[in-house]
Amino acid sequence: MKFNQTEILESVVAHQLKSEEDLPNLSVGDTIDVHQRIIEGGKERTQVFQGVLIGMKGRGINRMITVRRIVANEGVERIFPLHSPKVAKIEIVRHGDARRAKLYYLRDRVGKSRRLRDRRRGMKHVEDSGARN
């Protein structure tokens, strides 16, 4: 019997995906706030992890984002499943300018060079930068 594997697999998880309204239009290089639901001793609270979005991978329900921040002079990277109910909300703090899809080079950077340029209106290599900001 012929069936479209991708179509079936996407349809069975479709109701679990977060809608576009729930998720901002993320791009690599952005500084973002990830609000996480944490259940501790029967109580639920939200914890915010702020950092630079250094990579995205996967499609649909398998979408994962890697966020890097510096805690007490130590680099910390966390990978969040974008569509997990534990990720309550994602907010963009700042649009950064990234020329690559994966910003792994930030791992080797120290001090000021760790920062990314702000994405500004009219930058030649970013087509929709004007519309975004």
Partner: peptide, 23 residues
């Protein structure tokens, strides 16, 4: 039936369940 493939489910409390879809 036939095996379609695998994907994942999230429970409401955020647990990830690996699932196999069968037609």
């Amino acid at each position: 039936g036939r095996k379609v493939g695998m994907t994942r489910y999230y429970t409401e409390d955020g647990k990830n369940i690996p699932v196999t879809v069968l037609q």
